[in-house]
Amino acid sequence: MTFENNTPRTFNRSRSQRMLGGVCGGLGEYFDVDVNLVRAAAVLAAFVTGGTAILLYLALWMLLPE
């Protein structure tokens, strides 16, 4: 196994797959997962964690570059 293209990927907010801040779109693009699944998981996490996931989303929205 060779690693000729071992440039690190960066995690950014998405410009094309955004509904609110682009955080879920960026996660979907980074992990190569359907963005709608990430959004559904974020909504589910918001209910399960009692709102802590919303604070994490807001923090990522403020901290991640676009």
Rank of each mutant, 00 (worst) to 15 (best):
A46N: 13
L60H: 05
F31E: 06
G26A: 00
A46D: 13
G51Y: 11
V33P: 02
T52I: 12
G25D: 00
V38I: 15
Q17K: 08
W61G: 03
L64Y: 03
L58Q: 10
L44S: 14
F31M: 06
F47Q: 12
N36S: 15
C24D: 07
A46P: 03
G26M: 00
L56F: 06
T7V: 14
F31W: 05
F31L: 09
A42P: 00
N5S: 13
R13V: 10
L56Y: 05
R9H: 07
G25R: 00
W61P: 00
E66D: 15
R9T: 04
L37M: 15
R15N: 08
V33Q: 08
N6S: 08
A53L: 07
R15V: 04
N5E: 12
V23E: 01
F11E: 04
R15C: 03
R13E: 07
L63F: 14
M19Q: 07
V23A: 03
A46G: 10
R39N: 11
T2K: 10
A42N: 03
A59R: 12
D34Q: 11
R18Q: 12
L20V: 13
G21C: 05
A41L: 09
L56G: 11
G25H: 01
E29V: 00
R15F: 02
L27W: 10
A42M: 11
T49C: 07
N5T: 13
F11K: 00
M19I: 03
C24F: 03
Q17T: 00
L27E: 05
F31R: 03
F31D: 04
A42I: 04
N36A: 15
A45R: 07
A45S: 13
P65Q: 15
R9D: 06
